[in-house]
Design a binder for these strands. Structure first.
Length: 414
RNA sequence: GGAGAGAUGGCAGAGCGGUUGAAUGCACUGGUCUUGAAAACCAGCAAGGGGGCAACUCCUUCCAGGGUUCGAAUCCCUGUCUCUCCGCCA
């Protein structure tokens, strides 16, 4: 949620900033709702104050054993007015809340303005991509079986077998250990979240169609960012305890509504995938530095795996709903002869903190923290990158040294 | 699934339907004392929102949502969660 004080003081500026990410802010609607809210709130509160006063009077009289007919009549009328007024207020407040929950985060000043992903900016790269192409992961090994996934569940599900399943698991363990080295505390989490958690991080109410919903208040999580960030929901944190650095491996579930026909082949876009997530909760004036280090933590994994990648800074229109600034890490996928997103590291500033009411106190005043998250990394896509980049184009996938302690084998013969 | 108990401020823990936004203790902050610290003593200390240039003032909140009442932390109903016992069980 964006800061309503900003919205009140300079709505045109906010509107302009939001235009850069393709969001049309309806200032008129906001101001009209806000005006009504103020009117009804003042009115309701005045009536409440009067009620409290009259009730005291009534009580005092009752103690004496006397009764005042005109007072009773006054109270009766007041109750009706109050009832009316507070109902209207509740309606307006709920509309106002819906309006505010719909507005995306404001892009950071440093986020480049752009109209599409074409305007994203490459910041740096690592390694030499093999531009001569190559077989794709499904052609390389039959230990990834899409057909069985289809039988068991449906499209966009896969089954990993034998050494590939082990390699996949090794990757996750390696990533968690790297996160620990960088000072992140490991969590094991529920992979189901409720409406409130998903609203806090920004998936709801706007993007419900992207989620798998189980029942009324149960959804499968699309990322560990949701439970990790919500750990501190509704809390006032001791300043001295900040920052929090947390990591978790979870399965992630995405309905991929709206991406029909996109990335239909192979493991690249599945309904279910594994991911190790990094989350930081920090002081507002440290969050942009924290984004740089968090991104470097994610990068270190690609570096140790010696996978060619590039770091791309997303432009305003390509930002996720909750993010003010995002770096995508894109790994080289030989068969596609292109870089594909393998991690997305975002500074959500106070946007999620405001929704989740995560605060800290400084000099007696409470402020919202800043929250950051990033994948380190998406395991399924890392697996693809590994298989394709480490395939000798004949019959052997070699295992990077850093993973051999985990896999206990050095090659996969296919 | 059955039976019972509970949910109050950062934490622990009181609380008769009306001077209770809430006793008390701990923690925390400031001060006195001390070479410094500790102890002791004194003072302060919930959150969110409205109005006002301001001093200030008003409203809401004691798990959530309804209800009873002139008035609810306190009474009633529903839901959620926690704990104890029984049953079942990875």
């Amino acid at each position: 949620m964006i800061d309503t004080n900003l919205l009140k003081s300079d709505p045109k500026k906010i509107a302009k900033q939001l235009i850069s990410r393709n969001y049309q802010l309806d200032i008129q609607q906001y101001e009209s709702l806000e005006k009504k809210r103020k009117k009804h709130q003042t009115e309701t509160e005045e009536l409440q104050a009067r009620r409290n006063l009259l009730s005291k009077e009534y009580g005092a009289l009752k103690k004496e054993g006397t009764e005042d007919k005109t007072l009773n009549k006054k109270i009766e009328i007041l109750k009706k007015d109050l009832d009316n007024c507070s109902k209207k207020l509740a309606d307006i407040q709920s509309s106002l809340k819906d309006f505010l929950l719909d507005i995306p985060n404001i892009p950071a000043d440093s986020t480049p303005i752009g109209k599409s992903e074409e305007d994203n900016i490459k910041i740096r790269d690592f390694g030499k991509p093999n531009i001569s192409g190559g077989k794709d992961h499904l052609d390389i090994t039959s230990l990834i079986n899409i057909d069985v996934g289809n039988i068991l569940a449906g499209s966009r599900f896969a089954v990993l077998i034998g050494k590939i399943a082990k390699l996949h698991r090794a990757l996750i363990c390696f990533m968690l250990d790297k996160a620990a080295e960088h000072g992140y505390e490991e969590y094991y989490l529920p992979m189901i979240a409720n409406t409130q958690s998903l609203t806090s991080t920004g998936q709801l109410p706007k993007f419900s169609e992207d989620l798998f919903q189980l029942t009324d208040d149960y959804y499968l999580i699309p990322t560990a960012e949701v439970p990790l960030t919500n750990i501190y929901r509704d809390q006032i944190i001791q300043l001295s305890d900040l920052p929090f650095k947390m990591t978790a491996h979870t399965t992630c579930f995405r309905s991929e509504a709206g991406s029909y026909g996109k990335d239909t082949r192979g493991l690249i876009r599945q309904h279910q995938f594994e991911k190790v997530e990094l989350v930081q909760i920090c002081h507002p004036n440290k969050s942009f530095d924290a984004l740089e280090t968090l991104t470097s933590h994610a990068e270190s994994i690609l570096q140790e795996l010696n996978l060619p990648y590039q770091v791309v800074e997303l432009c305003s229109s390509d930002l996720g709903f909750s993010s003010a600034k995002t770096y995508d890490l894109e790994a080289w996928i030989p068969s596609q002869e292109t870089f594909r997103e393998i991690s997305s590291c975002s500074n959500c500033t106070d946007f999620q903190a405001r929704r989740a009411k995560i605060r800290f106190k400084e000099d007696g005043i409470s402020h919202f923290v800043h929250t950051l998250n990033g994948s380190a990394l998406a395991a399924g896509r890392t697996l693809i990158a590994l298989i394709e980049n480490y395939f000798d184009q004949k019959n052997t996938i070699s295992i990077p040294n850093v993973l051999q302690d985990y896999t206990k084998f050095k090659t996969i013969e296919v």
